[in-house]
Amino acid sequence: MSLPKTLAEDVARNLVMVARLIDEDPEQAYAYSRIALRLASRVAAVREAAGFAAYATQKYSEALAEFRAAKRMTGSVELWPVMADCERGLGRPERAMAMAGEPEVQKLDKAGQVEMRLVAAGARRDMGQLDAAIVTLQSSELASNAVHPWTARLRYAYADALLAAGREDEAREWFGKALEADKDGSTDASDRLAEMDGVEFVDALDEDEDEDRAAIGTDEASESAATAKGGDSDDEGEDRPSEA
């Protein structure tokens, strides 16, 4: 709303493309975000979108700078967890842990607080503190039977930490619970369970392609053999003297 109409439309189109592409083609999404940033760098939504596009392409230093700019413009703390995760991406898990203890965390909504807990647990694992990571994830949100948008990811992270600690039976149980809550396939809990149970998946399409290639090879071999045989017969006919 702060931009002239034509410029606002141009910026909006680029932001729409960022949103559409960020999951399937993050590099292209990043390119659109840079265009929007050149057009309207003083708009908080543009800085936030540029931050997420940079984050998706693992440009963590750039993402952190954009998130900080957006936070300054809006005064909102909702980007705090992803900012902490950028610190992890930059190899600074201790800074992420420090951010987990800042007053901003108390201002987050429930989803934001769960996200911050996930980031803090990841930072603990980065520092080799596996038991502490497990304890960090233990919470009322984890124990609750209610299913929220973040439930599957929280349960999955807990299962993954348990498995890393060698607690396979508990990990299997929590991967199962993650799968129960994962209605939109946001985790690969089913694959992890199958892997733990020794189930190996085979791509049916690959099998069909192999069979087709084998059949083609057999047909070509047969055709070559028939051609060779026919050629031998012709040669023999040429060598045989004609009858008067």
Score class of each variant (00 low, 15 high):
residue 85 D to G: 01
residue 86 C to W: 02
residue 86 C to I: 05
residue 87 E to I: 04
residue 87 E to A: 11
residue 91 G to P: 00
residue 92 R to I: 00
residue 92 R to W: 00
residue 93 P to M: 01
residue 97 M to W: 07
residue 98 A to F: 11
residue 98 A to G: 11
residue 99 M to F: 14
residue 100 A to K: 03
residue 101 G to A: 09
residue 103 P to K: 10
residue 104 E to H: 10
residue 105 V to L: 06
residue 106 Q to K: 11
residue 108 L to R: 03
residue 108 L to G: 02
residue 108 L to P: 00
residue 109 D to T: 05
residue 111 A to K: 11
residue 112 G to F: 05
residue 112 G to D: 06
residue 115 E to M: 09
residue 117 R to N: 01
residue 117 R to K: 09
residue 119 V to R: 02
residue 121 A to T: 03
residue 123 A to H: 01
residue 126 D to K: 11
residue 126 D to L: 13
residue 129 Q to R: 15
residue 129 Q to S: 14
residue 130 L to E: 15
residue 131 D to Q: 15
residue 131 D to Y: 15
residue 132 A to P: 05
residue 135 V to H: 14
residue 135 V to P: 03
residue 135 V to M: 14
residue 136 T to H: 08
residue 137 L to R: 01
residue 138 Q to I: 13
residue 139 S to L: 13
residue 139 S to M: 12
residue 141 E to L: 04
residue 142 L to Q: 04
residue 145 N to S: 13
residue 148 H to Q: 12
residue 148 H to C: 02
residue 149 P to G: 08
residue 149 P to Y: 12
residue 150 W to R: 05
residue 151 T to H: 02
residue 152 A to C: 00
residue 152 A to N: 01
residue 153 R to C: 01
residue 153 R to S: 04
residue 154 L to S: 00
residue 155 R to F: 06
residue 155 R to L: 07
residue 156 Y to R: 01
residue 157 A to Q: 07
residue 157 A to I: 02
residue 158 Y to W: 13
residue 158 Y to L: 06
residue 160 D to P: 00
residue 160 D to N: 14
residue 162 L to K: 10
residue 162 L to I: 12
residue 163 L to T: 12
residue 164 A to G: 08
residue 164 A to P: 01
residue 164 A to F: 08
residue 165 A to I: 05
residue 167 R to I: 02
residue 167 R to V: 01
residue 171 A to W: 04
residue 171 A to I: 02
residue 173 E to I: 13
residue 173 E to V: 13
residue 173 E to N: 12
residue 174 W to T: 09
residue 175 F to C: 06
residue 177 K to Q: 14
residue 178 A to H: 02
residue 180 E to C: 03
residue 180 E to Y: 10
residue 181 A to P: 01
residue 183 K to H: 08
residue 183 K to F: 07
residue 185 G to K: 07
residue 186 S to H: 10
residue 187 T to C: 10
residue 187 T to A: 11
residue 189 A to M: 13
residue 189 A to S: 14
residue 191 D to L: 14
residue 191 D to C: 09
residue 192 R to M: 14
residue 194 A to K: 13
residue 196 M to G: 06
residue 196 M to N: 06
residue 196 M to F: 12
residue 197 D to E: 08
residue 197 D to T: 05
residue 198 G to M: 06
residue 200 E to Q: 10
residue 201 F to E: 07
residue 201 F to A: 10
residue 201 F to L: 10
